[in-house]
Design a protein around this nucleic acid. Sequence first.
DNA 1: GTGGTCTAGACCACC
DNA 2: GTGGTCTAGACCACA
Lengths: 118, 118, 118, 118
Amino acid sequence: MEFKSKKGIFQQIADSICEKIIAGELLTGEKLPSVREQAALTGVNQNTIMRTYAELQRDKIVVNKRGIGYFVTEKAAGKILSKRKNDFFKESLPEFIKQVEILHLTKDDLKDLLKVLK
Amino acid sequence: MEFKSKKGIFQQIADSICEKIIAGELLTGEKLPSVREQAALTGVNQNTIMRTYAELQRDKIVVNKRGIGYFVTEKAAGKILSKRKNDFFKESLPEFIKQVEILHLTKDDLKDLLKVLK
Amino acid sequence: MEFKSKKGIFQQIADSICEKIIAGELLTGEKLPSVREQAALTGVNQNTIMRTYAELQRDKIVVNKRGIGYFVTEKAAGKILSKRKNDFFKESLPEFIKQVEILHLTKDDLKDLLKVLK
Amino acid sequence: MEFKSKKGIFQQIADSICEKIIAGELLTGEKLPSVREQAALTGVNQNTIMRTYAELQRDKIVVNKRGIGYFVTEKAAGKILSKRKNDFFKESLPEFIKQVEILHLTKDDLKDLLKVLK
DNA sequence: GTGGTCTAGACCACC
DNA sequence: GTGGTCTAGACCACA
């Protein structure tokens, strides 16, 4: 696994897990790889994975069953989507609009740039 | 001045200066507030302002006349805009598109969200 | 059976057995459910039940008759009560008092809170 | 600093800081010892202190000013007290009552045991 | 100087 | 086997 620099590694792993969940690759109730496995898979220290899992647990995206492992919660996909939506409308969208205005791009420019979307 | 956590303070100050330049509030040849004035204005350590000015100088957006102060260069607005454009197309736009896709927003949703633009 | 996180599962099961004993629901000489029955009842791994029973045996609260099962000893209720009393006076009570003081509760507040007791 | 075994060290340090806050030994706006200082003071690893401070920050008991340090928030004492009250009424008190009942202590016994309180 | 992240490795309790 | 905590030490960006 490769990591781009700006965000912490533990965050990037958390994000990638979240994306698997909303993509349906990780289902409700499914078990995540154990800390050690995940560490091996990603080529990262166990402590870093522990932090990833701990944060996911704090956000109720994952729960721990003692001595067994971490499991995707029921509300996981919902939690993730609602957080992402919130971030999008409160941060990304205004920031995007601000940049568009600064660059004096017009609606037509944008229509062109965003034509990749359905 | 308030600082949100993710970017460095020096960056945020640099950004705000750049925005004043492309908005025409700071003109070519105009003198920036002295380091200590700027520090007072922003409520920030002088070292931080020095770093801000140093970075702006590195990017040829301002020049230092020793013993006198920092001045906006001729090419400042051009430099800033070309950097911002580059960032926009290489970073912000792809990231924005990715988020839009994850949230399953349609072109029509976007048209609505971006109707504030001209 | 539900398990809250702080104590070990084996402990929680041991506690619940002990409470049945002092409540008279499990009498001297009575046979505990077999390990696999207990495991099924509580929805827990057999190893965990084995540990529970082993600890109870260590404390002389149950004895194992090989090939037959685990049985409540004569002194079980006495052992349990004396251990609980000891814990209560050395741990719970001082801790309780400390918390009451930190929250600045008065004797009258307490009288009110504890009025459910006979 | 000495640590008793059951809670994590990072928690015990967090607790002790909280107690200083509600005791008025650490005032609103006051700066905590830097991570390194606190580590030296308590004889504990810096990472452990980092975790302590991070948790306190998550609970809004403390805020970080970048490059400067951690500071006690306005609402710190309030947050702490309300959390402690909640814990007391939802956990400690019911647990205490349960133990008292199991041990068949009477109200008079308790009156005696709690006479140290004002 | 400050916080923050990551690694490597050890040790523990629990299932 | 599982998670969880702690240590020691390195390295980084920021004020």
